[in-house]
Amino acid sequence: MIKTNELTKYYNKNARGILEVSLDIKEGEIFGFIGPNGAGKSTTVRTLLNLIFPTSGKASVMDLDIVSDSVEIRNNVGYIPSEINYYGEMTGEEFLHYAASFYDCDYLAKMKDLSKRLELDLSRKISELSTGNKKKLAIVESLQHSPKILFLDEPTSGLDPLMQNTFFSIIEEEKKQGTTIFYSSHILSEVQRICDRVAIIKEGRIIKVETIEDIMKARAKKVRVKTDKDFIHEDEDIVNIKKENGYVQFVYTGKIEKLLKLLQDKKIEDLTIIEPSLEEVFMHYYQKEDVK
């Protein structure tokens, strides 16, 4: 459905762009695209939509060339940009009608249904909407014309957790309809939650394309324990141990049962287990890859 072959976008020395990105995304798949800010996620999406032109390499969407057939491609695409900038003087409703007018389709029912589920007030001017409400508007806008492909660039940023859940169920419904979804994010847990496969992009290059299951094996947790006993030592699952103020902190990549066993019957005053930042996961993950 979406194919890129050594797709490269070079801006200049300071702005990296993307380098030789090759991907093959199947029809009906939710494909996660994950990496830290500035890694090239938005550049990839914007190149596929022909908002910017590739420096070299080729790409196609639905077997249509991204440069020469971009209008036909966009006729089948919904897009949530990472930053929402719509016409401030329009109301949400005016804007959605305007957006839909570019397609030849029935959209009213879906527009109303989605707006209701997302609790979006369509009568307000866009300039008066909060970031979260603008995001909701973008969600409705990208879906109301029932596109075959969705490009979502950081779609949950600005949404509160409840709305994120609503959003995920909407996306899952779209998937059931056979929509192919390109899901760019820097939040590992949300990609893990809904994607089938994930590409990891770093400094403009794809370092890995994995199924979620494989990524899960390399999942790491950041563990912080308050204890005065010295029972935590580095091994294959415990790395990066730091001790301060009676706390021991480490990155854990093994099975959860094993961690629980380790902590059992010890004198522990406090315990937190949190998702490490993406960088921390990747750092460890790739150290491991290198060892292999």
Binding site: L49, L51, R74, P81, N85
Partner: peptide
């Protein structure tokens, strides 16, 4: 300037 062009040019219009 307003960055609405990102919206406009993602629509099926040349």
């Amino acid at each position: 300037d307003d960055k609405t062009v990102e919206f406009l040019l993602s629509k099926p219009i040349s």
